[in-house]
Simulated assay, not measured.
Amino acid sequence: MSENLNASADRSASAEETDSELSAFRQVVEWLANRNSFAIVGVFLALGLTADHFGVPEPADNILYLIGGVLPLVLATVSTTEDGYDHGLSNWARAKIIASQLVFMITPWGLFTQLLQSGGTAVAYIRHRGRPPNRTRKTPTTKFSVPVEREWTVTNGGITKSTSHSWGLVSQRYAYDLVVTDDDGDTHEGNGQRLEDYYAFGEPVTAPADGTIVAVEDGLRDHPEPGSARVEWRTWNIVGNYVVIEHDDGEYSTLAHLREGSVTVAPGEEVSRGDVVGECGNSGMSTEPHLHFQVQDHSNFWIAAGLVPQFRDIEVRRPDDRRADHDVYGTPDEAETLYLWAGDRAAGTEGGEPA
């Protein structure tokens, strides 16, 4: 009996050590996930060049280059304690997302997209002399409504580095991804293998404020494999079908991943807050139907710097109690204008009532 008890104690101690090690590993992963992806690529590129320069045996340099290319993709699938929303991805789903992104990256259009993203980010930094907009600098004068009808859930996005949609990509730094969920938090009916299974698919997308249409795209197909965790690697435009609206001078909103053939506006057309401009779709680089919404300081998606949108006439449900104590995001009952964060359920209001 004593031997069995000792063995149990040893196993318990071993399990605690394993949990501690996993916890430490998780902390390292989360720390890396909150770093700038371009910085990570740069570090491993420099390490690879150093290994090649000093004659480190092959294939050390190539492995370092590979890690630099793949690691940011892996980290992009990691939910951190600061995100405010657990994306619930399995390792198998992560593997499929990463694999399809890698396939996209080696295509001619994928390579061109990477040049646009990295070059555009550099242009944005140069335009702002290394100090891109944030929540206190170059804030938009326009107050935005949620660009949808009824209640939607924010699945990605925030205004701090740790909660950002894509901090390293300046144009998408303060972007949001929105979906429609049911009471159980599911985004679709059934097994989710059909576009029509998704509650968001085909839902109206509206102008978030008064403005003028400056650019549209409406001819890209909706990725026909939702729920597969594979992105549309064949698309030449990761934004998919989109509408860009100019609001106050130098303030633009982009509504992306719209349904093919659903755009109802054209460049030069005036729109009012709440006007329908298209429908939610699954075009571009999208794993399931959702709306990508961002505010930017230039009409061009690639060279723009993201602006921090403040929302008005909005009803927000924040089930996680820790949000109430978050100084940046405030509380829905007290704030005159609101920032959104992943996990929020948000709906526009008219006259104080849900739209």
Rank of each mutant, 00 (worst) to 15 (best):
G69R: 03
E350Q: 09
G278C: 12
S262E: 00
E260T: 10
D344L: 12
E336T: 15
R129S: 12
T136E: 13
E82G: 04
H290R: 07
T160W: 03
Y242F: 12
T337G: 04
T77Y: 09
D86G: 04
M285Y: 07
G48T: 02
D344K: 11
E203N: 05
I245V: 14
G42R: 05
L255R: 08
G240T: 07
T80A: 05
T141P: 01
G227C: 03
A355F: 10
L71I: 02
R234Q: 11
H87W: 08
R323I: 06
L178G: 04
I106E: 09
N241A: 02
G130F: 02
T136C: 00
G84R: 12
D182Y: 02
I314W: 02
L340R: 09
A51E: 10
F293H: 04
W167S: 08
G306F: 06
R26K: 15
P208V: 03
T235L: 00
V243F: 08
E288F: 12
R259P: 01
L73V: 09
I314G: 02
G306M: 07
A324K: 14
T287K: 02
N237H: 11
V123G: 00
W302D: 09
S79T: 15
I213T: 08
A335C: 10
L178R: 04
A209W: 01
N282P: 02
D177M: 01
N282T: 00
K96M: 14
T187K: 05
K96I: 14
E30Q: 15
L32K: 07
K161H: 08
P57T: 04
Y65K: 01
D186K: 14
S2C: 09
G119Y: 06
H188Q: 03
R150I: 00
G281R: 06
N191S: 13
L102S: 11
L102V: 13
E203W: 06
D327C: 01
R26Q: 15
L258D: 06
A122Q: 13
H290L: 04
G130E: 07
H128N: 11
V244G: 02
L75E: 12
H292D: 07
H87S: 10
R194C: 00
E288V: 00
L195M: 01
F201D: 05
L307D: 04
H326G: 01
V328Q: 07
Q172T: 02
T142G: 02
V277A: 03
N34E: 13
M285D: 05
P147F: 08
T80R: 06
E260P: 01
E246R: 12
A39T: 12
F38W: 14
K143E: 07
L22Q: 07
V265P: 08
G240D: 06
V170M: 11
H87C: 05
G250R: 13
L169R: 11
R137Q: 15
T113E: 07
A355N: 14
I314L: 12
G284D: 01
V170E: 15
E270V: 13
N91R: 01
S12I: 14
L32A: 15
V231Q: 03
R345W: 04
W167H: 15
W152G: 05
S253F: 06
S299A: 14
V239E: 10
G84K: 13
S100F: 04
G348W: 11
T153F: 03
G240P: 07
H188K: 06
E353T: 13
L116H: 11
L338I: 11
S164P: 02
V28R: 10
L75M: 08
V170T: 15
S14M: 02
L102G: 09
V179L: 08
